[in-house]
């Protein structure tokens, strides 16, 4: 009985030391920390797109992927085809579950779009998006490729392999950094950035952050007016046009008359 307390104390001490060792190793490798700069974007009169910088601390030797996803919305598109030897719209297609924007950055060691991989890239997107309406004979796979092509032509979709660079190493963790170039036609809304950490081909950690984009100043006022007071907006548009037309006609009066 008398030797028991020292044994307990020794066991407690060993447990505390072990716990401290585990915690210290966890904090030095660290959970991935995703930092987004800026966290908010304001679309104003001279907005022409923006650059968003993302940085994250990941375990040393691990790969990383950062996705930027826009709000999910329905797209109404026209499918082109050949009729009577001429190319024209042959039907309407509705796209469901497609994010308005999808941009992807990866570290150099990762393939941008793992075949069959469930986590990221166009393949993952393809599994989620649904097409309805006038589908081509080849099925929706061909339609998905064309949809991506259309979005890429606007700068709203893009896969940028090796664009997350290693910028520093400290202890068991590395810092990776990359930039998203958002085009001038990016829509206001709530965007989600998702960091996936991959080690030995397996997803080991995920973290997400928000990027809020809103419209301010004159564009914001006009956008709200056009939606909430459409008739007033239309009448103002016509009056502005009539007034400018008359003003220009009046200004040119002296020079124009024959």
């Amino acid at each position: 009985m008398g030797s028991r307390p020292p044994f307990i104390w020794t066991a407690v001490l060993v447990a505390l030391v072990l716990q401290a060792m585990i915690l210290s190793s966890y904090s030095s490798a660290g959970p991935p920390s995703l930092l987004v700069v800026p966290g908010n974007l304001h679309i104003k009169e001279s907005f022409r797109g923006a650059t968003v910088t993302v940085s994250a601390e990941v375990p040393k030797g691990a790969g990383a992927v950062v996705e930027l996803k826009g709000p999910v919305e329905e797209d109404h598109l026209l499918r082109k085809g050949r009729r009577g030897g001429l190319w024209m719209s042959v039907g309407e297609v509705t796209v469901h579950e497609a994010p308005s924007t999808y941009l992807l950055l990866t570290t150099p060691d990762l393939p941008p779009d793992e075949e069959g991989g469930p986590q990221w890239g166009y393949k993952a997107l393809e599994r989620r998006i649904r097409f309805e309406g006038s589908l081509p004979k080849q099925g929706s796979e061909a339609l998905f490729d064309q949809f991506v092509k259309l979005k890429e032509s606007e700068g709203l979709y893009g896969v940028l392999p090796s664009s997350l660079r290693l910028v520093g190493t400290s202890g068991d963790s590395s810092t990776v950094e990359g930039q998203f170039r958002l085009p001038g036609n990016i829509a206001p809304g709530s965007y989600r950035l998702v960091l996936s950490v991959i080690n030995s081909g397996k997803l080991v950690e995920q973290q997400s952050a928000e990027l809020a984009i809103d419209m301010q100043g004159l564009p914001g006022i006009l956008f709200a007016l056009a939606l909430r007071h459409a008739l007033l907006y239309g009448v103002i548009a016509v009056l502005v046009a009539l007034a400018t037309g008359f003003l220009m006609g009046f200004l040119f009066k002296g020079k124009g008359a024959h």
Partner: peptide, 12 residues
């Protein structure tokens, strides 16, 4: 109408 379009989808 004659030349095949580069992208087979367009916005409505």
């Amino acid at each position: 109408l004659i030349i095949p379009p580069h992208i087979m989808l367009a916005y409505k």
